[in-house]
Design a protein around this nucleic acid. Sequence first.
DNA 1: CGGGTGATAGAAAGCGCTTTCTCCACCGGG
DNA 2: CCCGGTGGAGAAAGCGCTTTCTATCACCCG
Lengths: 358, 358
Amino acid sequence: MAVTLAEVAAHAGVSPATVSRVLNGGYPVAGGTRTRVEQAVEELGYVANGPARALAAATSDLVGVLVHDVADSFFGILAGSLQGALAPTGHGDPRRLAVVCNTEGAPAAELAYLTLLEGQRAGGVVLTGGAVEEPGHTGALTARVTRMAASGAPVVLCGRPPLPVPAALPVATVMFDDRGGAFRLAEHLLALGHRRIAYVAGPPGLSTTRERLAGHREALGLHDPALPEACEPLTVHAGFERSAGYDATRELLRRGAPFTAVAAANDTVATGVAAALREAGLRIPGDVSVAGFDDLPVCVDTAPALTTVRVPLREAGVLAAQLVTGRKPLPPGGITTLPTELMVRGSTAPPPAGGSRP
Amino acid sequence: MAVTLAEVAAHAGVSPATVSRVLNGGYPVAGGTRTRVEQAVEELGYVANGPARALAAATSDLVGVLVHDVADSFFGILAGSLQGALAPTGHGDPRRLAVVCNTEGAPAAELAYLTLLEGQRAGGVVLTGGAVEEPGHTGALTARVTRMAASGAPVVLCGRPPLPVPAALPVATVMFDDRGGAFRLAEHLLALGHRRIAYVAGPPGLSTTRERLAGHREALGLHDPALPEACEPLTVHAGFERSAGYDATRELLRRGAPFTAVAAANDTVATGVAAALREAGLRIPGDVSVAGFDDLPVCVDTAPALTTVRVPLREAGVLAAQLVTGRKPLPPGGITTLPTELMVRGSTAPPPAGGSRP
DNA sequence: CGGGTGATAGAAAGCGCTTTCTCCACCGGG
DNA sequence: CCCGGTGGAGAAAGCGCTTTCTATCACCCG
């Protein structure tokens, strides 16, 4: 079967303890001894037994990555860069493995996976995506996160607001400036002359939905205090899938209230919005402007290319990896906010001259 | 700290062995005893220590999922459905965790991750994406896969050809009918009247590239034995990214050899192809038809919607999960080929009447 | 009516590693 | 010249679980 530590020790003529120390560092080992052990490891092709290490050390090389759904590019890109950054540059470093868990955004699934990861003695956990803001769940989540962090496993909240955990614990938050991005996007639409701006928001109760909507409204209100209220009937809550955007837009069109622009919760929803508009015979951006959020790869290939807000997913993934592995110290306050950037493309233009349609 | 098996045993007034048996099944436990144990587990909120189980049982609940890159929708969708299907319907079932590893298609990374997973005593491994067909690597991979399977961890090859391992081992292969799909796509182009068909192929040496190209050429040859050779100068090898399609198309245009259609290695590449053509002032499908492969979600939102070949990624993910967990018996021969389907959309049309351009 | 014969439960031996705790040599200072 | 220090190595005790191997009981059949 597999080579064990003891065999390596025997081969090198030292005790198992010494081999362990050479492999894990943090304890002085004389140069000659170290060399002999390393050679034995090499010759025997020794690969440590992960579970045994985890059992003895009470922590493993596993890093849990909770996402709403990896099939969604937003999470796929985040998880991908995170996974890549988990493998450090140095060659001998212990390689962390990413355990990705699709929660579908469901609180129960989130907690269930956290339990599973705790049982696996995961060496860290990254919670990504908007948080369900519901007192009961936030409380339960905070308790779980506190417990994990207290047991030494760093927790990184990525793309969601911080949790009220004791400051001394290894819990970091990496946020996106969703609010600012939504604000600038709305400003862009206003500057183009739009006033009747529809908004296809994400699921209610989700932090991301709240932030983006807040930024959007703030911009409207700053331009004209009456605008937020005026646009209220043009706001629809939906899911984060393409079909949600499609359905919401059909509903909007059915209602008949005129609008000249639609801002969507994210790019995927925006493609659904665009499809519904096109199907209704409306031209983009001639008749109606459309904007998304996230700047997923799809944005540049839609027709027309989608105006959106870039969210630095790759950067976030790398940062989260560095934080969860402890390679990067926690920032003071534990919170890092990554900037978002308005990406103006072809899907937004001034409203039609003849007045607002439909 | 965490509740242990022994504590549950004490609470239920039985021995640890009995608790273990209730939890794992496969050994008769009297109804009353079982109930008492289950109640104790419930009351104490017991969660098994994964590493300890894995150490004692020499196998874990971890399932390795090797992908080229999760950020790529192809793999994201595959990994997502696979991960979802790993969590069985029943509630008490042991939940398998998916460890996703980005190999970037690099043989060395593939082997390195396999070693890591072996060290973790993974309960199974799924290798996805085209295989690098290089004797040395195939040999090394076969050896590794054989060893893992022999130690009891099922291995599933998904979207790649089978490996020559002993038939008795738990190794299954789930393939896509890439060749057939490419064949039908080429037939479609030929039926539209195209004769000068460019092909932006994937990286050389990859099984997927080979299969798709083979199907494509087969259709050309069947239509006119001289066609494959005639189209040879219009075939370019590139990567699987959008930029590869873009660059390859620019190169094709630069060469000046006329073509009326371009078939791309996959949808992502096709979007790059389309972008380059559009940039060159060519209309799709008016001047040049474009076709992709995979039928990723992006296909329906490009302008025009992309004609492509649907590859049943979700189905494959679910099937792979069932096979790797042993929930579904290995098919005879160990190989399952999933059908692909031609999806005709707006990006393909008859070639321009005036003759082939550019 | 006694010893098979199942059906259950317990004892105990690890699984392969980490990590105290101990021990040993050898060093320099008093 | 002796002794406390100190760097380096080993012994051994687990970590929490699975899994033989054994030990009990009932029973049941000849």
